[in-house]
Simulated assay, not measured.
Amino acid sequence: MLKIIVVSDGIYGDRTYNTVKTEFETEFIQLEPPNDQLIDDEIEIPEITLNKLKEANIIISYVLHIDLVHEIVKKVHSYVDWIIVASWKGEGFKNQIKYDNVVFPYIMCDIEENGNPIFDEFAVKFGKPKVNLDISTNGELNDIKVVRSSLCGATFFVADFIKEKYKNKSIDIDKLPQEAGFKVQHYPCRAQKLRLFSKENQKELASTYHKEAFEKI
């Protein structure tokens, strides 16, 4: 079984940990961010923490402090299969870290398989939302199976809401995707509202992905 480590130096990562641990061996590591007043000092990560990180197949980083992200990647990238940097800002930062096994998703519910067996074993379960709808011949909702959930667990939240509302009731298939996309905003989604490089902002994209998931019957 894959070993996943979620690492954070702030308030993010807890929901990913709680979601991913339902499928894989998962550990959550909370780090103290460096003191910026001591910026000239070398950033130190406890040896016991480094050893734990090196044992992972996949590290998911919600570390916000740029220098700490650099240090983690530098120290452990050659020991692990993949590092997914979930929290990052700006192409300049991303371009400073160039390793084949380090990825920077624009948004965490954008992750899909990439052809690597280790990565795909993870990405088939978590990333871009995917659901199967079981609709009876008379148009009633029998069930919803979450095939792949966003890492934050929002896909399960939306599916549970739709099932509770429409279970064994007639359902408007044309309106369902829009309702699903709207409901994910009530999770609440922590994706950013800021537009980055003229792309659809992350909150809109999370909504769009869940809307599209419920369009595929």
Rank of each mutant, 00 (worst) to 15 (best):
L2V: 00
I4R: 00
I5R: 02
D9P: 03
D9K: 01
G13V: 01
G13P: 02
Y17M: 03
N18T: 07
N18I: 06
K21E: 13
T22I: 09
I29P: 00
P34A: 10
P34R: 11
N35V: 12
D36C: 00
L38D: 12
E42A: 06
E44I: 15
I45E: 07
I45Q: 09
T49R: 03
T49S: 04
A56M: 02
N57V: 00
I59Y: 01
Y62D: 00
V63A: 01
I66E: 14
L68H: 11
I72V: 11
I72T: 11
K75S: 14
K75T: 13
S78G: 06
V80G: 05
W82D: 05
I83D: 02
I84Q: 04
V85K: 01
S87G: 03
F93E: 14
F93P: 15
Y99W: 10
Y99A: 09
V102T: 09
V103L: 14
F104H: 11
F104G: 02
P105S: 05
Y106V: 06
C109V: 04
I111H: 06
N114T: 04
F119M: 13
D120N: 13
E121N: 12
F122T: 00
K125I: 08
K125S: 11
P129T: 01
L133W: 11
S136P: 01
T137Q: 14
N138A: 05
E140H: 13
E140S: 07
E140P: 03
L141Q: 12
N142F: 08
D143L: 02
I144P: 04
K145M: 00
V147R: 10
R148E: 10
S150W: 00
C152V: 05
G153W: 11
T155N: 05
T155H: 02
F157Q: 00
V158R: 07
A159L: 10
D160L: 09
D160V: 03
K163F: 14
E164G: 12
K165P: 03
K165A: 07
K165Q: 14
K167C: 02
K167R: 09
N168T: 04
N168M: 12
N168H: 12
K169C: 01
K169E: 14
S170N: 12
D172P: 08
P177C: 09
A180N: 10
A180M: 11
F182K: 15
K183V: 06
Q185A: 04
P188M: 03
C189N: 00
R190T: 05
Q192Y: 14
Q192R: 10
K193I: 06
R195W: 03
L196Y: 15
F197C: 01
E200Y: 10
E200S: 07
N201Y: 14
N201T: 08
L205V: 01
A206L: 04
A206N: 06
S207E: 05
H210K: 02
H210C: 01
H210T: 00
H210A: 01
F214V: 12
K216S: 14
I217G: 06
I217Q: 11
